[in-house]
Write a protein that binds this DNA or RNA. Sequence first.
DNA 1: GTTGGAGCGCACGGTACCGTACAGAAACAA
DNA 2: TTGTTTCTGTACGGTACCGTGCGCTCCAAC
Lengths: 259, 259
Amino acid sequence: MSDQHIAVAAEHSFTGQDPHAVEQNDAGNWLIQRMHPADFDLLRPHLRRVPVISGDQLAEAGSAIETVCFPESGVAGFLDVLDDGRKIAVGLLGREGFVGWPLLMGNDRWPHEVMARGRDGTALQIDASRLKKAVAVSPGLGNFLVRYASAFVTQMSRTLVSNLIHSIERRTARWLLLYHDRLDSDELTITHEELSIMLGVRRASVTEALHQLEGNGSIRGHRGKLVIRDRAALVALTCETYGQAEAEYLRLIEPSAAI
Amino acid sequence: MSDQHIAVAAEHSFTGQDPHAVEQNDAGNWLIQRMHPADFDLLRPHLRRVPVISGDQLAEAGSAIETVCFPESGVAGFLDVLDDGRKIAVGLLGREGFVGWPLLMGNDRWPHEVMARGRDGTALQIDASRLKKAVAVSPGLGNFLVRYASAFVTQMSRTLVSNLIHSIERRTARWLLLYHDRLDSDELTITHEELSIMLGVRRASVTEALHQLEGNGSIRGHRGKLVIRDRAALVALTCETYGQAEAEYLRLIEPSAAI
DNA sequence: GTTGGAGCGCACGGTACCGTACAGAAACAA
DNA sequence: TTGTTTCTGTACGGTACCGTGCGCTCCAAC
């Protein structure tokens, strides 16, 4: 967040460059890190590091996509918003992706609400119009970014399956893994209430599920916090709904080859 | 299917053109119809009309995308395949879309199994490599096609929500609407068994749900067939999980404007 | 220290599903 | 006709959820 922002700026001030400039090697976002350097050069003049506070609304369902951001820490929950105001989580995104993939699919409006979660941190932000121009110049960049969208859709698909066939305990295990993957710490800052929204169930059901997970030693719960103690046990509980989407991400993003 | 194929070929034989050539106006697929004529010209030499029989496997999860097809009749169910062989439906596609949208998202492998359903009919098929070349020549075509992918993802998202918050009766109503939209007739050829796969529930639960729908007069059931008698009643049952994705399709596809 | 709120534990009856199973009815083949 | 398969109706006990509500505990604010 702000402190970090200042720290990063200071770190580079001695180079004589714009102190606000973002460099590819110090970017905390995996897509920024792994994109072709020439593509990064297209984006760099327009990238700015901004603070992201847990609870921030990064996008409003139905409104125009004006800025896109590449998280460097924390997570972003994608929520489908119903007419009655209820919100159901359809996916989770962190520093491995970017908030704005619908733009790369030709959509100029947010299909979901996006909420910052997990921890306060930073993101690299760019105006949607700038990104579109860069993609027009470099089709390879567009292809690279839309491959992430493909990976996210796979995650959505697995979430759908998990919701349909698994108990709340298993679904909770899966969601904790999605969180854990995207944060640096084994200690997750999350309440039962928030998990219940993500899973689309009662808060009390989450409490019960977490007790079961505590029972077999895979997690420890404190007030507003959860500590991951046995990841393997969690993975085992998710059966096949965790891992495939993550492998798909690596397959699609790791190689810089275009289709 | 084959009969229709021959009929279409005969219809054009007197023009002196290649009897197998596909014309934009007589294509039954909405995307083919609505794409820019110049883009259609890029595809035309490589398009072929092929029969599609209900039950055909159009794609195998995990295998390479070699051909892409634009259905002219019937529907295609997208299924996530689990390690134990169980299959869960994540979406439905018909003549309004195309089987192969993952390719336009930079993915060279099928993320799902795709099964032809509903009725026998035809599709316009093209080799994936040919389509990629056409998209490389015309970015506008790529943008147009990937916008359909965006609409499909919205449908997936609503399916996820529907599975999470609605009773089997409501989810059945929604699925019947998705079918009905993509077929010409009020009479749907579908068994309880098949619906149960699509909804991820017991076959007996579907039977029960259909009886409820018959009870309020919205459908009539026969052996292997269902007749839609009151669409509005079905729509009402789906609450907000039907309609939004369909509106999104029109918003993204109707105008030929690029972003 | 007191107060207030947020987070959590727990309990109640209710119900919408589940897995399984079996038999009748319709379509089809020989 | 007879058999065979497919589709449908129905039943059973079991359970994993649900909506609701209430009270405890921790923590922060004052």
